[in-house]
Design a protein around this nucleic acid. Structure first.
Lengths: 337, 337
DNA sequence: GTGAAAGCGCTAACAC
DNA sequence: GTGTTAGCGCTTTCAC
């Protein structure tokens, strides 16, 4: 207790030098098979674990990757993290987690206090009101790579991975149209966020393709919460022309919307169709079940992590923007009869 | 780019020694106010960030705490992490996250590969089938403190923080009884887990208090998933005596149970009452809404973290077991008319 | 194939 | 109040 075994201890036991031990442990350079075997044995015996602080200091990297995101208490982000975790674990990297609570100030404070010496790379999903992203550019300039996922800034040149927000939205709205809905509203997310804009564009283009009306009052920007979905919907129900379908930027808002509709005794599907985005498990719990564009959250996580490792391993790795398609899951909320 | 500022750089600029810089930066010992101000200024100018690898090496600790838990993709655990994160952030600690996927093998591998030199303490919720917990005892013996939360082992002497599983279950079942349900079943979690046993005991004692029958076939152990809740319920419906209420070990199982009941057109509340445990947001999304014992997930996280810091700061801190009460939230699933 | 020694960035005696 | 120096555990030239 108290004293952890070091390579010095191993060296002493075998009466060899620390450098040999170091080499043996990492099976690098040419080291005698016998010596190596002995080193391994003693290491095991002494319960030796490398001190990553020391390794990091000596080698100039840390074995850590950081994740910065708005929240973890929802299906999407927690699943992304699980995907990241899986890959990082296999590569022997540790994950250091930072939660911004979707606050730009917190995001700033986190990035400014981040000791870049302790993080080999960063995976980030920016907060809603991060119009300026210079704090991330600074980090990149300091030499530590960043891969953005989901909520990506558009003025930084680095790898990004996203679900197919544009076609996802397009397909969701097209599905609504194919099912006979014609007055389609969109309850959107925070204005300014790239994916919010892309989903909006998909919505608009689908309407245009089918010559359906676009009404300003049918497009409402607000937050991403269930509550926002609820209040947006009440607002929609006050419109001069009441829509017959709602495309929500995510499932939480779609669910809020359904709650509002149910409270007004509006029959979902028949009177007003609702389609969401995510495929949150809650979409099968609510009744009627929610039609939604499923997001490949786990894959987004593992793909982001994969790209990050490429950046870490070869600097000047050409950045990539990866777009992973979603999958429309048709359920009851868009069924008319 | 490339070169990060070090205390040496600061020292060079001001033509003073590194130790003065070091002292000034940490505002420890007595250092001239003027010198200190200058150091701070240059540090800011050079965008100096301490290299925690080096600090860790020199001081023998790491600024990191680890979290090991089964999953993060559910309301409870992700909220606990958020609570931990909040406290850790304020104390300037980083969080290193490990997910076991509820696999004992993974848990073992994580703990065995854990370099204890890089973690000052550990917060853990054990996996379902971790009957043996010697791997955690080993870590404690190596000198790094552990605080367990929620899923705690009972053969390790260290701080633990839990919701009040026993009284929570007792109160939930008592609520059922007060509402006239008399044939109450319990769909439990994995056998062997402390909290599973405590909730079972609360259930049993409530029945006993009111002289209600305990039937073996009404108590089903299985996993914690919604699917398990569903299949457990189908099994219950096959019983010779069909229960008129179900107490589920958690909300996910309760929801699975409700799905099963709904598929059989059984009117929840009226015919069969259901009560859960957690207060997962899904409990208000499902219809009828689910009565549940709310768990103080966030507080569990921050309290665990607080205790861990106490252990870290004074070794031989007497361990504490903290039990945080829950709160019964009555909704429709236990309303008879 | 192995050892000696310098050094990664920082802290902490110990001098003065 | 400040400087000098050793050392944390490891990697890595450079010798041999």
């Amino acid at each position: 207790m108290g004293h952890l075994a070091t390579i010095k201890d191993i060296a002493k036991v075998l009466n060899i030098s620390v450098s040999t031990v170091s080499r043996a442990l990492r099976s690098t350079y040419d080291v005698n098979q016998e010596t190596k075997a002995k080193v391994m044995e003693v290491a095991l015996q002494l319960n030796y674990k490398p001190n990553y602080n020391a390794v990091g200091l000596a080698k100039g990297h840390s074995h850590n990757i950081g994740i910065i995101l708005p929240w973890i208490t929802n299906y999407y982000f927690s699943t992304v993290i699980t995907g990241i975790q899986e890959l990082a674990y296999n590569k022997g990297y540790n994950i250091v987690l930072f939660v911004t609570n979707d606050s730009h100030e917190r995001e700033l404070s986190i990035t400014q206090n981040l000791s870049t010496a302790n993080i080999d790379g960063l995976l980030v999903s920016i907060s809603s009101n991060s119009d300026s992203c210079s704090h991330f550019q600074n980090i990149i300039d300091e030499g530590i790579p960043i891969v953005f996922f989901d909520r990506v800034p558009n003025n930084i040149k680095t790898s990004k991975v996203m679900q197919d927000d544009y076609y996802g939205a397009f397909a969701a709205v097209e599905h609504l149209i194919e099912n006979g809905y014609t007055k389609i509203a969109h309850i959107a997310g925070h204005q300014g966020l790239t994916f919010t804009e892309k989903r909006l564009q998909g919505y608009l283009d689908a309407l245009e393709k089918y010559n359906l009306p676009v009404r300003k009052e049918w497009i409402i920007y607000s937050g991403f919460s269930q509550e926002c979905g609820e209040s947006d919907t009440y607002q929609l129900l006050e419109c001069e022309q009441i829509p017959d379908a709602i495309f929500a930027v995510n499932d939480r808002k779609a669910i809020g919307s359904m709650m509002a509709l149910k409270s007004k005794n509006i029959v979902i599907g028949k009177e007003i169709g609702v389609v969401g985005f995510t495929n949150d498990p809650a979409s099968t719990i609510i009744s009627p079940s929610l039609t939604t564009m499923a997001e490949p959250a786990f894959d987004i996580g593992s793909k982001s992590c994969e790209l990050l490792f490429k950046h870490i391993n070869k600097k000047n790795f050409i950045y990539e923007e990866v777009i992973i398609p979603g999958k429309l899951i048709i359920r009851e909320s868009t069924t008319r009869e």
